[in-house]
Simulated scan of single mutants.
Amino acid sequence: MQRKLWILYLLTASLSFAQVNDGALNTAINQYNQGKYSEATESLRNILLDSDKANLQGDAYFWLGKVYVTTLELVQAEKNLEYFLQNFPNNTNYPEGIYQKGRLLFFQKEYAKAINVLTDFINKYPDSSLISNGHFWLGECFYETGHWEEAMTAYQVVIQQYPKSFKFEAAKYRVTLISLKRREEELLKLIKWSHEENLESLEEFQKREVEYRNAIKDYQNKLAILQSKNLENQLVDISDNLKSQEDQNRALQARIDNLEAENKALRTQLNSKDANIQDMTIQNNDDIQKLKALIDLKERVLKLKEFYYVELLQEGVQVDGQ
């Protein structure tokens, strides 16, 4: 009888001890759920410091890691989660511990590692209540690294397979952002392509402009040389023309001089002839007068002869030779 009472006492004491321990852990969990992270941290540390609560150490380390992940105290979160995962693989919170490690790596921007951890969580624990969250955070890792297709696939799993998930609206929002990102990328590519094309066109234009300016400069130089040569040729031609004109002028001047000499001689001759003509005129006038006198005399003689001839006829005298 006493033995049975002793066994009953031990069972009651163990149950009471477990209830006390469960009460301390529940208090910490409630504090966490209420957002009282400092109080929850203190309660969990008290559990770890209490040697009578050794059976709750695994849970305490897990929740401490979870609290630190939530408050983004990443160094402390990493220490507690790693200790939990390495030392309490049989703890019921172990699957969520892997999930929280994936989130922690995401916050630490270790995206490649986070993808591996979250993928391992999804593959190993497809029935976990956090499976939709696992897909969401996997999508977040791809989103942050610019892998839009992979991110879209992860978010679509949440939207299509877990419409009641806490992450449903967040996943829909991310899908919308990815669509906008795609459009933005296409627009940026178009702008970049247009900009590069414009740059190529500008460079080609500048190149052609330089070539054009060089061609103009070369043409101007050649033109200057040609003009210089033409000027020299023109000067030579002008010089030759001037020499020819001077020769012609000298010939004309000589001819003029000859003509003037001839003219002078002619004038001299003319003056001399005019004098002769005057002398001849005077002589001719005298001869004419004399001739006229002779003619008058002859006429008188003829008239006289005629008179006598008529008289002789009347008198019957024949004249010889008539």
Results as ranks from 00 to 15, higher is better:
Leu297Pro: 02
Phe136Ala: 00
Lys124Asn: 12
Lys124Asp: 10
Asp50Thr: 02
Phe205Ala: 07
Lys66Ser: 04
Glu246Arg: 11
Arg300Cys: 04
Asn258Lys: 15
Ile98Cys: 06
Gly102Ser: 04
Leu312Trp: 13
Asp287Gln: 08
Phe142Cys: 00
Lys36Ala: 04
Lys181Ile: 00
Asn198His: 10
Asp218Val: 15
Ser14Ala: 15
Glu144Pro: 01
Lys217Thr: 08
Ala224Asn: 10
Glu203Ala: 14
Ala54Glu: 15
Lys290Leu: 06
Asp247Leu: 15
Gln156Arg: 09
Trp148Cys: 03
Leu72His: 09
Ile131Arg: 01
Gln245Cys: 03
Leu313His: 02
Tyr308Val: 11
Ser38Ala: 14
Ala261Thr: 14
His195Ile: 09
Lys53Ala: 05
Ile216Glu: 09
Asn133Gln: 09
Glu246Leu: 12
Phe121Glu: 00
Phe168Arg: 13
Asp127Trp: 05
Tyr99Asn: 05
Asn284Phe: 03
Asn214Lys: 08
Ala215Arg: 11
Tyr37Asn: 10
Thr119Phe: 12
Asp120Leu: 04
Gln206Gly: 02
Asn271Glu: 14
Asp286Trp: 05
Gln322Pro: 04
Val301Arg: 12
Arg45Phe: 13
Phe106Glu: 02
Ser179Lys: 15
Thr153Tyr: 09
Gly35Asp: 02
Ser38Lys: 15
Ala224Arg: 04
Asn263Pro: 07
Glu232Gly: 08
Ile159Ser: 02
Tyr212His: 13
Gln100Arg: 06
Gln314Gly: 06
Phe136Cys: 01
Val157Glu: 09
Arg174Asp: 08
Asp320His: 05
Gln160Met: 10
